[in-house]
Amino acid sequence: MPLTQQDIDAEIAAEHAAYARRVADGAPVEHHPRRDYAPYRSSALRHPRQPPVTIDVRRDPELVELRSPAFGERDLSAVDDDLTRHHHGEPIGERITVSGRLLDRQGRPVRGQLVEIWQANAAGRYAHRREQHDAPLDPNFTGVGRTLTGPDGSYRFTTVRPGPYPWRNHVGAWRPAHIHFSLFGPAFTQRLVTQMYFPNDPLFRYDPILQSVTDDAARQRLVAVYDHGLSVPEFSLGYRWDIVLDGPDATWIEEGR
């Protein structure tokens, strides 16, 4: 029997209920997905069964994981942050500006760090050979960008709004439109890869990847807000999305925590 959306919906609901029970029993809030999340079928054989071994960084301030690789201006070229200008012509789609700040758990800006993004085009097609969705490729859009955060932790990209696309998790599976983000902080422990979504997408409730974040408030933090002040007149619509990196860094030690 092929898996249906109803099967996946039931599994998603069961995972949410299990999380609600854990919290009611006093377990901590889970900000990140569990790696073992059955509704996302690809996780079945790819999650460790053993719990991770915890390293208390306060006991060893010399750990290389408390430092991070450096990136600089020579790692970028001039229009890397404008995905609409990587080819000779204009890409098709709704032009958008995506901007926000990269912060740490203390709310401090993360400066001068690398932000990489990738996405489908306006029709929901990735420029990847293994992509089988028969939406058209856009010869004027690849969908890859990068930038460095500014002194206030800010980043800004110009791109087109990606389309939703079908995938083969189950019959009728569609991913809500999203942009992939890859981020570095001042410590390698803070490494983050995630996805930004657009507000009010009707596909949210059906998507096992978004729903793998079982905490409602945490899930909401993956959704950008429309920000009219970021919209550029006669040019683009603006979305604001701040990103907060988790994990300890060297200042946890300096501050005696």
Partner: peptide, 29 residues
Amino acid sequence: MTTTDPGGPGTALPTPSHTVGPFYGYALP
């Protein structure tokens, strides 16, 4: 990165992690 709240000193709540998916190949490597 932990799967549960480490009970750390954070004042800002972290952005959840997500999978890289299958199509990062033309972007990250």
